[in-house]
Amino acid sequence: MNSPIIALDFPTMEEAQGFLEQFQEPLFVKVGMELFYKEGSQAVRKLTESGHRVFLDLKLHDIPNTVERAMRSLAPLGIEMLNVHAAGGLEMMKAAKRGLEGSGTKLIAVTQLTSTDDEQMRREQLIDRPLPESVVHYAELAKEAGLDGVVCSVSEAQAIGEACGTGFIRLTPGIRPGNESHDQKRTATPAEALKAGATHIVVGRAVTQAADPAASYRSIARQWKGLEQ
Rank of each mutant, 00 (worst) to 15 (best):
N2Y: 04
A7E: 06
D9V: 04
F10G: 00
M13S: 07
Q17P: 00
Q17M: 14
G18L: 01
F19R: 09
E21C: 03
E21M: 13
P26I: 12
K30T: 10
V31N: 03
L35R: 08
F36I: 04
Q42D: 14
Q42L: 13
A43C: 13
T48Y: 00
S50Q: 15
V54P: 05
L56T: 02
L56S: 09
L58A: 09
K59H: 12
L60K: 01
L60M: 14
D62C: 11
N65H: 12
T66N: 06
T66L: 04
V67H: 11
E68S: 12
E68Y: 02
L74E: 07
L74V: 02
A75G: 09
P76Q: 07
P76C: 00
P76G: 13
L77P: 01
I79Q: 08
E80D: 15
G88V: 01
L90Q: 07
E91R: 11
M93N: 03
K94S: 07
A96P: 11
A96M: 08
K97N: 12
T111P: 10
S115V: 04
T116Q: 15
M121C: 03
M121F: 04
R123P: 00
E124M: 14
I127H: 09
I127K: 11
D128T: 15
P130H: 09
P130V: 12
P132H: 02
E133F: 01
S134W: 02
H137T: 14
E140H: 05
E140T: 14
A142G: 11
E144F: 03
E144V: 01
A145D: 05
A145M: 03
G146E: 06
D148F: 07
Q158I: 00
A163N: 05
G167V: 00
I169E: 06
L171G: 10
G174N: 06
N179L: 08
E180R: 12
E180L: 14
T187F: 01
A188M: 01
P190R: 04
P190M: 03
L194W: 02
A198D: 10
T199Y: 02
I201N: 07
V203C: 06
G204F: 05
V207Y: 02
T208M: 08
T208A: 13
A211H: 02
A211Q: 13
D212I: 05
S216Q: 12
S216F: 02
S216V: 10
S216P: 11
Y217D: 06
R218W: 03
R218A: 15
R218M: 14
A221G: 04
Q223D: 13
Q229G: 10
